[in-house]
Simulated scan of single mutants.
Amino acid sequence: MTARKASENESWDAFWTSVSRPKTTTIRGVEVAVPTDMPMLVEQRVEELHGSDQLEDIAELVAMIFGQDCLTKWRDNGMGLLEFRVILTWGMANARGKELSFQEAYELTQETVAEGKAPAPNRAARRAQSAATGGRSKPTSRGSTGSGRTRSRS
């Protein structure tokens, strides 16, 4: 394997920029980088913020993927909820390495809505729903979960 002289002194940042070839697009008047990789911190923060309905938490995650203040600017520029869901679908797919067009993201979002697979309710909503039914869950049948009786071989 032959290494080029120029690449020996090249920084990681310069190398990665040349390999990833960042592109931009305009979404609701805001120029954003097309996500091509998922920041490692995003997965951790998604886990930590799971169930949160705080706008600040959503804005933090959007900023990690699309850039600072995107959510505020999009909202101020009239972005609707469906539009936001399409952009998230598009951004997350691209960030995971699957190039997806806006049209494909829209169709996926529409399929999800049609199938009734809306985003999972936050923790408070799930608890409220559980509390509304009242009482505990019914135990599982012992016949399907219990072990069979063993007989001695005598």
Rank of each mutant, 00 (worst) to 15 (best):
R28K: 14
A63F: 01
D53G: 14
T150R: 10
I58T: 15
A131C: 00
E99S: 11
A105T: 04
E56K: 03
L71Q: 06
T25G: 06
E47R: 13
P139M: 10
A131V: 01
V62M: 00
R28L: 11
V34Q: 05
R28D: 11
Q129A: 15
I65Y: 05
R127P: 08
R96L: 10
R142D: 14
A128C: 03
T36F: 08
A128T: 02
S18Y: 12
D53N: 15
E111W: 04
S154I: 11
E31A: 13
M64V: 01
L41G: 12
Q68M: 03
L41P: 06
G91L: 09
K138C: 14
A93T: 01
G29I: 01
E48T: 06
P22G: 05
T140W: 12
I58S: 06
P119I: 08
T145F: 06
S152T: 08
S144Q: 05
S141W: 06
R151W: 07
N77E: 10
A59P: 11
L100T: 02
Y106E: 11
G80D: 12
E47Q: 14
T145I: 09
R4C: 00
L108S: 11
A128F: 05
V32L: 05
F66I: 04
E10Q: 12
D37N: 07
E47G: 11
A125Y: 08
F15P: 02
I27E: 04
M79P: 05
W90P: 05
A63L: 02
D69G: 02
T2R: 13
S101C: 03
Q129Y: 14
R96P: 03
G97H: 04
L71M: 02
K117A: 02
